[in-house]
Every structure is written in C-alpha cells, then in structure tokens.
C-alpha cells in the first residue's frame, strides 16, 4: 500500500480530492513578472485561481516589484489584495537602500490592515546584511507589534542572510514572529539553532523544501513540526507540487496538518 492509499490519511485525501481536507495557508509568495523567468500565472487572478484549485485558503506574498523596483510602492499591493480579500495578504517589502520609503510605508501599516501582515526582507539581493542598522526601524516596528517578519535565507556562510546572521536577529528581537524563508536551506545546524535559541518566536518556512528527499523529516526531528510553516514562492512553484512534497513525507498526519495549517492559526489566530 502506498502513502496515497492509507485509509483516511491526509495524503489519501489529497490524492482523491486534490486538497488535504482542511484549508492550507501559504506564507511565502510573490506576484508579478520577474526578469529571470517566464511566468504564465504571475498576476493576482491567475494565482488565486491556482490557490483555489489546491485548497489553499490564503497566500501571504510580497510583490516582486515591491522588492526589486523601488519606484513601485507597497500601497499598490494593498489595492491588489482588496480585489481578493478572502485569499490574499501581503508583507511590506523592505528595501534597506530607501529608509524614507520604509518609514512612509510603515506609517500606513494600520490603514492597510487586514490586508497587510508583516514585513519582508530580501537581504541577499539588496546586498545588506539582515543585522545592518538600515533594517532597524522596520524590525523594531515589527517587534513592537509582534508582526511576522519573512526573510529570504539560505545556507552557506558569510553572506547577507546566512544562519549566523539570522541567529543574531532572533537573539535581538523577541516579539516579532520570524519566518525563515527557505529554512536556511542546507544549513541544518543553524536551522536548528535559530529555532531553539530564540525566545520561541522563530519558525522555519519551507519554500523550496517540499520534494527534497528527507528534508522535512529532518526538520521535524530537529525542531518539531510545530515550528514549520508552509510556503511555495508562488508563482515560482506549483501548490500541488509543494503540498505533495509535504503530504508524501514520512511524517505523521498531525505533523502534516501542523505544517499546512495549524501552526499559522496558532500564530495569527483564526481571523487574519
């Protein structure tokens, strides 16, 4: 009997119905064109249609332009979310090279609720380490309010969002909710440390991980499924592929449910 045939399992439900039987929360998405790739489904309507097919109730995203193109402002993203109020939430894209824009945008944060969730940092591309003072205003803002902070992270050492840098961040801020995008991919030592040596406000976000053989199993062993958050980088990666990677992993159904749904509800509540 294969994983897909286990009676009344999450995987079986996915195989038969195309969704796990409960709403999925995808906490790492993007939107819009990107120079390095062809997207057929990079705009909101197509993305939301894809989410619905896979049973993903909400996507939290940052528009590509809000990260790569300084003239494109986060206010535009809020307007996109208003068109899909049940499905889309956004992180304020933080570009450390434009401190005045950061202040202007965060000044509108309360006005943008409930569509806005937190902030997103992309240090590896902006080439400013996550510990740099240019992020402090935004990080203090998030910390005071207990907001999610999604970072692009990756393994290896000596770069802008590596494991040691992320550890410094969680040691400094104890109230913001850190989602370590891509789970510091490949650096198991620091993936474990950023969770265990935090004040309990640190989570590994799984974009690019589901499908990697044994990796979700390893994270469950190192930090527990309660510390894992689901994400896809949509429109980069397919929701069915990523959900398939989670539900076909050799972990319990409780762990699968934690990753795809329960953990986010514990962090953000039922209404967000």
């Amino acid at each position: 009997m294969s994983v897909w045939n286990e009676t009344n399992s999450v995987a079986e439900h996915c195989w038969k119905h195309g969704n796990p039987g409960f709403p999925v929360f995808d906490m790492h998405g993007h939107m819009g064109p990107h120079y390095a790739i062809y997207f057929k489904r990079g705009e909101a309507a197509d993305m939301v249609a894809h989410l619905k097919k896979a049973g993903v109730a909400k996507l939290a995203f940052t528009h590509h332009y809000a990260l790569w193109e300084p003239s494109y402002r986060n206010a535009n993203v809020c307007e996109i979310c208003k068109e899909f109020p049940e499905n889309l939430r956004f992180y304020v894209g933080i570009n450390p090279h434009y401190p005045e824009i950061i202040k202007e945008d965060l000044a509108q944060f309360d006005k943008w609720r409930p569509y806005v969730l937190g902030i997103k940092m992309l240090a590896g591309y902006h080439k400013v380490n996550v510990t740099d003072k240019s992020y402090e205003y935004a990080l203090k803002f998030a910390d005071e309010r207990g907001l999610p902070v999604l970072n692009h992270t990756w393994g290896g050492r000596g770069h802008y969002n590596d494991g040691p840098s992320m550890l410094k961040l969680v040691e400094k801020y104890h109230n913001a909710k850190f989602f370590h995008g891509h789970s510091i991919f490949g650096d198991y030592e620091y993936a474990e440390r950023v969770v265990k040596e935090s004040a309990g406000n640190s989570y590994l976000e799984l974009t690019a991980v589901p499908g990697e053989n044994g990796m979700i199993e390893k994270f469950c062993e190192l930090v527990g499924s309660e510390k894992l958050i689901f994400g896809t980088d949509l429109p980069w990666f397919d929701e069915f592929q990523a959900i398939g990677g989670v539900v076909s992993a050799k972990i319990s159904d409780e762990a699968k449910r934690n990753i795809l749904h329960d953990n986010v509800e514990r962090i953000l509540g039922k209404e967000w």
């Binding site: 195309g18 990697e212 053989n213 398939g244 990677g245 539900v247 992993a249």
Partner: peptide
C-alpha cells in the same frame, strides 16, 4: 530525480496538473 527528491511531490503535481 530520486534520491535527491522524493517520488511523491511530482506525482500529485501531475495528477492535478489540469
């Protein structure tokens, strides 16, 4: 691409490809 990837992720992606 086993053993780098598991078998299952691409199976669900294909089954629900549309």
């Amino acid at each position: 691409n086993f053993p780098q990837y598991n078998h299952g992720n691409g199976m669900l992606q294909l089954k629900y490809s549309g």
